[in-house]
Simulated assay, not measured.
Amino acid sequence: MSEPRLPSVDEQVRVEKQARKPAAVEGPLARLGNVPHLGLVFALVLLAAVGLVTVPDTFATASNMVSILSLAATIGVITVGATFVIIGGGIDLSVGAIMALASVWATTLATQSYGPFVMIVCAVLVGTGAGLVNGLLISYGRMVPFIATLAMLVAARGLAQRMSDRRTQLVQQGNEMIVELSTSRVLGIPVLVYIFALVVIAGGCC
């Protein structure tokens, strides 16, 4: 068995020089490639540019910006929770369907003359129960998160359609608190946007 060949003196000197050589300076484009979520920022800028070019008279107005924030507030609150799931390496496909089910269940109680607090507690319990089922299936049932949450998506969506009879449900009189929560503004900004901002701050502090 032959002995291992030791590196020559010239080869050792070359390796040491290579180690002392300063790293190559990255150009501006290379540094941009290291910016996280650059693609999402580019897509947002592109959408804003399309809006400014196509409808400049209405897109860049304060009322339109407030409307966009108000519409995004509900989904934004859900995305804060979904962010923690994604950070943990999981996935949840059922968040939208669970939100619809909780909303339908709460408004069904409203049509039966229940007060706003009962509606809120019902919506929280429905969301908590559905999330608990997902967690038990994934943690103890050893189901793949994609499959478990996909099944919950189909089940929650079907139950919501069954309960609402595929009709739009409206909150009637006696639940002014819910109506005011969705329509009231403070300093010209809807209360829903403030709630969204508080949830984002709380999520960022966790």
Rank of each mutant, 00 (worst) to 15 (best):
G51W: 07
A110M: 14
G39S: 12
S67C: 00
I138H: 07
I138K: 04
G81I: 06
G89T: 09
A48V: 12
L44R: 02
I86G: 01
L47K: 01
A73M: 02
A62M: 02
G131I: 09
S94Q: 05
A130C: 15
W105C: 15
V104R: 07
L40H: 09
I86R: 07
T54W: 09
A100M: 12
G76N: 03
L132Y: 13
I98E: 06
L44Y: 11
I91M: 13
A97R: 02
A106C: 12
G127N: 10
V41I: 14
T74D: 05
V53Y: 13
V41E: 01
G88D: 06
L47Y: 08
P56R: 05
L101V: 09
S70T: 08
V126R: 06
V50G: 05
P36G: 07
V133W: 02
A110W: 06
I120F: 15
L69C: 06
D92V: 02
L101R: 05
G115I: 10
I75E: 09
G115T: 12
M65Q: 05
H37I: 07
I86K: 03
A97F: 04
F117I: 15
A82E: 11
L132G: 14
M65G: 05
I91A: 02
L69H: 01
T107H: 04
V55H: 13
S67A: 12
I75W: 04
G51I: 06
V126H: 08
A130S: 12
T111Q: 15
L52W: 11
T107A: 11
V77Q: 04
L38H: 06
V118I: 14
Q112C: 02
S103T: 15
A43Y: 06
I91L: 14
T83G: 13
T107E: 07
G135T: 13
T83S: 12
G127I: 09
T128N: 03
N64L: 00
T58S: 12
L47F: 13
L137D: 01
M65N: 01
Q112T: 08
A106V: 10
S67G: 08
A49H: 03
V35H: 09
A106P: 07
T58Y: 04
A130V: 12
P116A: 11
M65A: 13
G90C: 05
W105E: 10
G115D: 15
V55Y: 12
A60W: 08
A82N: 10
G89V: 07
A82P: 01
C122E: 11
V85E: 02
A48I: 10
S139H: 13
D57N: 09
P56C: 08
P36V: 08
N134T: 10
A62F: 06
V50D: 00
A110D: 07
L109K: 11
D57A: 14
T83A: 12
A43S: 13
S70L: 00
I68D: 00
S139V: 13
L125G: 04
Q112H: 14
G89I: 06
I98F: 01
L38I: 15
A43H: 03
D57L: 09
L40M: 14
G96K: 08
V95L: 12
G88T: 02
N134F: 05
L52A: 13
